[in-house]
Design a protein around this nucleic acid. Structure first.
Length: 490
RNA sequence: GGCCCCAUAGUCAAGAGGCCUAAGACGCUGCCCUCUCAAGGCGGAAACACGGGUUCGAAUCCCGUUGGGGCUACCA
């Protein structure tokens, strides 16, 4: 088989969203699977829609996900430049050639004229198609108008009969009737290429073997085939990935909550979880026993033919669940490192703590991580390890501090019991407390619940003895004293 | 409107004419474990959009309908 070269070609009009991320991921998986290259190309021909910083955001999101490219921005390669805005000469040359070969032509119709025509046709209930007014202008006329400086676009001369057949690796053979297309624009009046044209010129120049992109481009593909044919280029293989939809089956947008990769990062998602989730959207690891799969496993099992044809509704619940799974199993030091910025932002620690108390922070992360699903939740669940308890959970307060008979005295016994523990570790603390329970002939929960509330302010936490040991003797005694005093005042 | 794609539980998704009394996962739910919450273990409810064909036999093939999505720009 020939060299496999695929590309991801985002337009820098905003952040990388999960649809784009999945397209990039599937391209990456396919390239890795076949020892091919992934090319990153920035499609920035529409200067009006460009957004500042967009490129660097997209690049950093891709890197965060672990999707690396072999050629492209900040990387270089033999087929550059990788920004379409720097490739104008290629487009101009190709368009000029088409004009010389009588396969494309200058069109001098103004936007107003076209709009008028459009309205007229709509009134008649006809689909809008350019009528080919400038199609047969004589060379002299064209030269004349060009000299006069009348703005013009370049249009394809589209044959008005015949079938255009697209071979798609996911969808099979899809055919279109050529006569439905009008003479579409390949170069705008400022000379910059229209999407379909730039795309074909670049994919050919960059020797792309497989075009893997979103389904929204399937309808553009026959036009691109027409361009390939006119230019005499070999047509690559296509694979159109189904769309990712919002829960209401509409197109995903900001109103549907987090859709940008960066937003998932901010809420404390782990990149491996997002990647894992995205691979499951449209592809399924049939021969693997679990859905928790690493990129390496995915690469070896991946095949485009097995990619699902139906649009997928994205379900944040499953992503969060996957993230929770990774939270408890991922490398602790790495997770700690990722959590620290969250802790700082939440005001739990400062930069100095982050350095000096690294071990403590790591222990906190380790004990809390198995009961939370995101780093955001981890941060919230870690509060009392860094800050004093300033209030008690309302329901817990009612149940354990107000309604529980003799709780102050009980906690005092607990306090004194802890006070006798020398080596304040989990085993010693637990055996001391257990001994107290059996002396008092009470069930564990009777003293554990109020203790938890006193130490954490919450009704939920990791195992209470783990909490005690991590908090240390001093803080445990302080917080118990404070709670006892608080209860007495009720 | 025209053209194109798609159609299995709430969601992702296995399924290539008999192996389907239709996998698995998330979510929901019952029980167990338990100091709480998670996690974990064992159960449960929940789907082939509809109508016609083809066939001895259809979730699977064909046609139609309905529904969803995309394209139809001097956007990509």
């Amino acid at each position: 088989m020939e060299k496999i070269r695929v590309r991801f070609a985002p337009s820098p009009t905003g952040y990388l969203h999960i649809g784009g991320a999945r397209t990039a991921l599937f391209n990456w998986l396919f390239a890795k699977k076949h020892n091919g290259q992934l090319i990153l190309r920035i499609e920035d021909t529409d200067t009006e829609r460009l957004k500042e910083d967009s490129v660097s955001q997209i690049l950093s999101s891709l890197r965060w996900l672990g999707i690396d490219w072999d050629e492209g921005p900040e990387k270089g390669g033999d087929f550059g430049p990788y920004f379409q805005s720097q490739r104008q000469e290629y487009y101009t040359k190709a368009a000029q050639r088409l004009i010389q070969e009588n396969k494309a032509y200058h069109c001098f119709c103004s936007a107003e004229e076209l709009e008028e025509e459009r309205q007229k046709q709509r009134k008649e209930g006809m689909p809008f198609r350019y009528q080919g007014k400038c199609r047969n202008l004589s060379p002299e006329e064209v030269q004349d108008r060009l000299k006069q400086g009348i703005p013009s676009v370049i249009r394809m001369k589209v044959p008005n009969s015949g079938q255009v057949v697209v071979e798609d690796l996911i969808r099979g053979t899809v055919s279109f009737n050529a006569k439905q297309f009008d003479d579409f624009i390949i170069a705008k009046s400022d000379g910059t290429p229209a999407y379909n044209f730039a795309c074909v010129v670049d994919d050919h120049a960059m020797q792309i073997s497989h075009v893997i992109r979103a389904e929204e481009h399937l309808s553009n593909t026959p036009k691109q085939c027409l361009i390939y044919q006119a230019l005499g280029y070999e047509i690559p293989l296509f694979a159109h990935l189904s769309m990712i939809l919002a829960p209401d089956r509409s197109k995903l947008s900001k109103r549907h909550g987090a859709t940008a990769v960066g937003e998932f990062q901010e809420m404390g998602c782990l990149p491996e979880a997002l990647v894992n989730y995205l691979t499951l959207l449209g592809w399924s690891p049939v021969e693997l026993e679990s859905e928790l799969i690493s990129p390496a496993q995915t690469i070896s099992a991946f095949s485009l033919e097995k990619v699902s044809k139906n649009a997928a509704v994205y379900d944040v619940q499953k992503l969060i669940w996957l993230n929770g799974q990774y939270m408890t199993t991922c490398d602790l030091d790495r997770l700690t490192l990722q959590a620290i910025p969250f802790f700082i932002r939440a005001g739990l620690i400062n930069n100095i703590d982050a350095e000096d108390n690294r071990d403590y922070i790591r222990d906190v992360v380790n004990t809390v991580r198995e009961r939370v699903r995101t780093i955001g939740e981890l941060t919230e669940g870690s509060r009392y390890y860094f800050q004093d308890v300033v209030s008690y959970d309302e329901k817990g307060r009612e149940k354990y501090f107000v309604k529980q008979e003799g709780v102050a005295a009980l906690l005092t016994k607990g306090r004194n019991c802890l006070n006798t523990v020398e080596q304040f570790d989990v085993e010693n603390v637990e055996s001391a407390y257990r001994q107290l329970m059996s002396e008092l002939e009470i069930k564990g929960g009777i003293i554990i619940h109020p203790t938890r509330l006193a130490l954490t302010g919450q009704t939920v936490s990791p195992g209470i003895f783990d909490v005690m040991a991590l908090l240390g003797k001093k803080k445990c005694l302080e917080r118990l004293d404070k709670a006892i005093e608080y209860i007495r005042k009720i």
